[in-house]
Write a protein that binds this DNA or RNA. Structure first.
Lengths: 342, 342
DNA sequence: ACTCCCAATGTAAACCTTTACAGTCTTCGT
DNA sequence: ACGAAGACTGTAAAGGTTTACATTGGGAGT
C-alpha cells in the first residue's frame, strides 16, 4: 500500500490545469463550466482518486448533513423499523445518521447535544418523548435545533410529531372487541404520564362510550408498558376477582405479559379470554395464540419523519404540526367471541 | 430568541484578554496555562456559551472522532444489543456512531464508504460478514480504513474479529443434547457460504464425533438462518421420513421455524422432539415451550469490538487478530430426554 | 550583575473547501 | 468596427480550529 498523500482539490486543479475554483464548480455547478474543461477535471479526478473532504466543506458551508437520533433504547423492537425508515430517507437525500442511545439517562442526553452545539449535526429526531435534558431550560443559550418527534410525542413543546393516530387506532381496536360481542373489556397499561398511553386510553373510552357501554374503573389497570407490568395487571384482576372477557393492552409487550399470566393459570386462549395488543412487534405473530393487534406503519413513519425534518432544515416548506398515520388492524387468533357464561 | 451570533474562539479570547492560542490551550492542555489566565478564560467561555466548532477542529486535526457501523439490517434482534455495546464504549471514549443500514445492497455499501473517503469517519465496524463493495478491489486507491468485524467474521481478509466462539458453543450445545440421551440429532441451517453457519456445523460434528456417534448426512439440512427456512427444513425431514429426536438449529429464528412446523403437525414439545437454538434473542424465552439456547454476550462483544477498533485507531496497541467470547448455555423447556420408542 | 532557562503567551501558518467579485475573451447586434 | 452582453475562469477571503515557532519576562545560579 503506497503512502500516497490524499489528493486535494489543488492537486486536481494542477493536473487539469485550472484553478481550484473551477474544480469546485465542475463538481457542484457543472453547467457553469465549459464542457472541455469539465472533461479535463473529471479526468484529473479519476486519475487522483480525489474525494471532497467533507470536513472542509462542512466548515465552509456551516452544515454537516448529519442528523442526530436520540432514542431511549435502540434495542426496542418498535424502534428498529422506524430507524430503517429514517435511514432510508436520510440516505436518499444525502444525509448521515448519528445515533444516540440515551437509556433515558439525562447525562447521556445532555452529552449527545454536543453534536448539535458543535455543529456536527444539523437536526434532531426525538424518540424519547421529551426534550433532551439541557435544552430549552435555563441554558437557553443553546438555540433549539430543528427537530421532530417520532413515535412518542413530546409533551408541552411545540415540536412536530410524526406517528400513528393512537387515539383513533385504540378506538378501532376496542370496537373490534365489541364487534365480537365483548362487553367487559379491560384496558391494561394506563399511565397518565405517558402521552401515548393516555391517547390509547382515550380511544378505548371513546369506543365504549360510542357503544353505550359504561366505563368500569375496575377494568382499567395501570402499567408501564412492559411485559412484566402486563403479567402483574392480569394477576391483579384475578386477585380482585373482577374479570373481563377481553383484555385490550396498551402494547404487545403488555399483551404478552397478560397471556403469560393467563397461561400460567391454565386458561385456554382465546376460548376463555380474548387478548388484543398494539404495535405488531415481530414475535406477535409467533406467540400462541398469535396476537391480534394494531400494526403501526413504522417504515413509513420513519421515512416521513425524516422528510419533515429535512424540509424544516432546508427551509422553505411550512412547518407541519403533526402527521398522523392510520394503524392497521391485524386479525390473528387471540380474539374470539366471548363464551356465553352469563 | 436572540439572533446572537454563535461565539467563536476569538470572541472568548477577546473577552478574556488573551490570544486564541491561549484559549485553545486552556481547553486542551490546561497545565500549560497559568491558573489566573485559565480562570479568566473559563469565565469568558461561560459568559459567551462558547463550544468549540467540531468541524473546524476536525478539519485541522484530520480526524472526525466518528465510527461508521455497517450492518445488513439494523432491525435484526441479534444486532441491537451489540449496537448498545458499541455505543456505550464509543460514547465513553468520546466517539460518535454513524449508522449504515446496507440491506446487503452493494450500492448502499459503496455509498456509505463516502463517509470514510471524505474523512467523516475514522474507522469502520463490519457486521455484514464481508468487505463492503468498493473497498480493496480494483479501486485500491482507497486506503483501507481501520476496521473490525463483529458477530460475523469476514472471510478471506485479515480483519480482527470479535465475537462468540461459534464452534465451541455449538459443541457445547450439541453435547447438551447428547447428555440428555439423544443420538439422532439434526443440524438445521447448513450454509457453506456463511462463516458462522460453517463454524456451528463444525462444532456440531465435533460433538457427535467426540461421543462416538456417526454423522448421518440426512440429518444435516440446508437453511439460510430464517424462520421460514427452519420451517421448511423440518417439513423436508418429515417428507423424507428420516426423523431425529432432537433438532439443533443454527440460530433461534430457525428454531422457531422448526417449532412452528412441529406444532402444525400436532406434536407435543418437548415430549416428542427436543429443539435447541442459538443466540438467545428476546422472544426465545416467551415462546412455548421456552427455547433452550446458547446465549451470546452481545453487550460485551459490542464493547470489546469498539475497544479493539479504537486501539487500532489510536495506534499503539498491537493488532489483536481475534477475540472470542464464550457463549452461555441457557436451559429452558424445549429440550428433554428422548422418548424411548425404539 | 550577568547569563541561562523555563514558563507563559502570542503570531501566523495550515487544514480544504466554497463563493463573491473581478477579469478576460468571444460573440452578436447595429 | 465598436460596444455590450454574456460565458467562462481566476483571485482571494472566509470558515474556526490547532500548533510549531517566536517572543517575553522573571527567577535561579554563579
Amino acid at each position: 500500500m503506497l503512502h500516497k498523500k490524499i489528493a486535494t482539490i489543488e492537486d486536481v486543479a494542477a493536473i487539469a490545469g485550472v484553478s481550484i475554483a473551477t474544480v469546485s464548480r465542475a463538481l457542484n455547478e457543472p453547467t457553469k463550466v465549459a464542457d472541455s474543461t469539465r472533461r479535463r477535471v473529471s479526468e484529473a479526478i479519476a486519475q487522483t482518486g480525489y474525494t471532497t473532504n467533507a470536513m472542509a466543506r462542512n466548515l465552509r458551508m456551516r452544515r454537516s448533513n448529519m442528523i442526530l437520533i436520540l432514542a431511549p433504547d435502540v434495542g426496542d423492537p418498535n424502534f428498529s423499523n422506524i430507524l430503517v425508515g429514517l435511514e432510508t430517507e436520510a440516505s436518499k437525500r444525502g444525509y448521515g445518521l448519528l445515533i444516540g442511545n440515551t437509556q433515558n439517562d439525562p447525562l447521556r442526553e445532555a452529552d449527545y447535544l454536543r453534536f448539535i452545539s458543535s455543529n456536527q449535526a444539523d437536526g434532531l429526531i426525538l424518540l424519547t418523548g421529551h426534550l433532551p435534558y439541557g435544552i430549552g431550560g435555563a441554558d437557553a443559550s443553546m438555540r433549539l435545533p430543528p427537530m421532530v418527534a417520532v413515535g412518542e410525542p413530546v409533551a408541552n413543546a411545540d415540536i412536530p410529531y410524526i406517528g400513528v393516530d393512537n387515539r383513533e387506532a385504540a378506538r378501532v381496536a376496542t370496537e373490534h372487541l365489541i364487534a365480537q360481542g365483548h362487553r367487559r373489556i379491560a384496558f391494561i397499561g394506563r399511565s397518565p404520564g405517558r402521552v401515548v398511553n393516555g391517547l390509547r386510553e382515550r380511544g378505548y373510552r371513546a369506543a365504549l362510550e360510542g357503544a353505550g357501554i359504561g366505563i368500569d374503573p375496575a377494568m382499567i389497570i395501570d402499567g408501564d408498558s412492559t411485559t412484566e407490568s402486563g403479567r402483574a395487571a392480569a394477576e391483579l384482576m384475578f386477585v380482585r376477582d373482577r374479570l373481563p372477557t377481553a383484555f385490550f393492552c396498551v402494547n404487545d409487550a403488555t399483551a404478552l405479559g397478560v397471556m403469560i399470566a393467563l397461561n400460567a393459570r391454565r386458561y385456554d386462549l382465546p376460548a376463555d379470554f380474548s387478548v388484543m395488543g398494539f404495535d405488531d412487534i415481530s414475535f406477535s405473530s409467533f406467540v400462541t395464540p398469535a396476537l391480534t393487534t394494531m400494526k403501526q406503519p413504522r417504515l413509513n413513519i420513519g421515512e416521513r419523519a425524516m422528510d419533515v425534518l429535512l424540509a424544516l432544515l432546508e427551509g422553505g416548506e411550512p412547518h407541519e404540526r403533526e402527521v398522523l398515520f392510520r394503524a392497521e388492524l391485524i386479525v390473528r387468533n387471540s380474539v374470539k367471541a366471548p363464551r356465553t357464561r352469563f
